[in-house]
C-alpha cells in the first residue's frame, strides 16, 4: 500500500462511498427533521429540529380516519402477502415437481408475460373490475396482484433445491400430495417463504398506481394513498406529509433492520 497511486485511489474510493452514503441517508434525516418543522420551515430548507412535531402528528392523524387507513394498509398488504405466497408457492412446486412438456411451455409463456408492463393492463383491468362491480373494494386491489409471475418464478427456482427424495419418502410414508406440500414442503422451505414474505409485503405496502385507480373513497384509502393525497394539494403541508412519510416507511424499515440478511436473500432469490 506504499504505492502513492494506490493510496490516492483508495482515498478517492472512500470519498465517493462517503458521498454516496451521505446522499442515501440525508433524505431520511430530512424526513425526520422535517416532521418536527412547519411546512414553511421545510420549504425554506431549515435543517434543524423544530417544535412542530406534535402539531404535525395531530394534523396528520386528523386528516384521515387514521385507524381505518392503517387497517386498510395492513389488511391489504397482509392478506395480499398470504394469498400471493400460497398461490405462487403452489405453482412453483407444481411446475418444478411435476415436469411435463406441456407445462414447461406454459411456464415459458409466463416468463414472456413477465415483461408485460402494468401500464398496458390497467385500463382493461379497471374495466373488468367495473363489470364485476367491485371497484372500490379490497378484492379489486388484491385479485390482480395475487398471481405474481415474479414470485412464482422465485418459488420455482427455490424449489430446485428441495430434494425430490423427500417427496418420494413422504409418498412411501403414505402422505397425499397436499399433505406433502403442507407437512414437508412448507416447513422445509420456510426460509424461502420468509424471504418472499418480505418482498411481497414491501411491494403490497408501497403499491400506489393500482390502488389509486380502484380505491376511490377516503375510507378505502391506504397509508400510501393518504400520503399521496396530502402531497397532491396545491399548498401541501410538508410537516404533516413528513409524519405520513415516516409512518409509511417505518414498517418496511423495521423489517429491513430486523431481517437484513433475509431481506437481501429475498431480493436475490430469483437470479440465483
Amino acid at each position: 500500500m506504499s504505492n502513492p497511486i494506490a493510496l490516492i485511489g483508495r482515498a478517492g474510493t472512500y470519498l465517493l462511498l462517503s458521498l454516496a452514503a451521505f446522499v442515501s441517508i440525508f433524505p431520511f434525516f430530512w424526513m425526520v427533521v422535517g416532521a418536527s418543522n412547519t411546512s414553511a420551515d421545510i420549504i425554506r430548507g431549515k435543517g434543524t429540529p423544530g417544535g412542530a412535531l406534535w402539531d404535525n402528528i395531530v394534523k396528520f392523524v386528523n386528516s384521515f380516519d387514521m385507524v381505518r387507513v392503517l387497517f386498510n394498509s395492513f389488511l391489504l398488504a397482509g392478506l395480499g402477502t398470504v394469498l400471493t405466497l400460497l398461490v405462487a408457492s403452489m405453482a412453483g412446486y407444481g411446475f418444478e415437481m411435476f415436469r411435463s412438456r406441456f407445462r414447461e411451455k406454459v411456464f415459458g409463456g409466463l416468463l414472456l408475460m413477465l415483461s408485460i408492463p402494468f401500464a398496458a393492463l390497467m385500463i382493461p383491468l379497471f374495466m373488468l373490475m367495473a363489470q364485476l362491480k367491485i371497484i372500490n373494494t379490497y378484492q379489486a386491489v388484491l385479485l390482480p396482484s395475487i398471481a405474481s409471475i415474479f414470485i412464482i418464478f422465485y418459488f420455482r427456482q427455490a424449489t430446485k433445491a428441495f430434494p425430490s427424495e423427500l417427496r418420494d419418502a413422504a409418498k412411501i410414508d403414505g402422505l397425499k400430495e397436499w399433505q406433502i406440500f403442507l407437512y414437508v414442503y412448507m416447513p422445509v422451505m420456510r426460509s424461502t417463504y420468509a424471504a418472499a414474505t418480505i418482498i411481497v409485503f414491501m411491494a403490497n405496502w408501497n403499491s400506489y398506481l393500482w390502488p389509486l385507480i380502484v380505491l376511490q373513497t377516503n375510507e378505502m384509502k391506504t397509508l400510501t394513498l393518504a400520503v399521496a393525497t396530502l402531497a397532491a394539494g396545491y399548498t401541501p403541508d410538508f410537516g404533516v406529509i413528513m409524519v405520513g412519510a415516516i409512518a409509511a416507511t417505518l414498517p418496511t424499515l423495521i423489517i429491513f433492520f430486523l431481517l437484513q440478511r433475509r431481506f437481501v436473500e429475498g431480493m436475490l432469490g430469483a437470479v440465483k
Binding site: P163, E165, A169, G174
Partner: peptide
C-alpha cells in the same frame, strides 16, 4: 399407492425430514 405396497425404502441421500 406406494404406502400400501408393504414396502419401505432407504434413499441414497437418506431423505430425512
Amino acid at each position: 399407492d406406494p404406502s400400501k405396497r408393504g414396502i419401505a425404502m432407504v434413499f441414497q441421500s437418506y431423505a430425512l425430514y
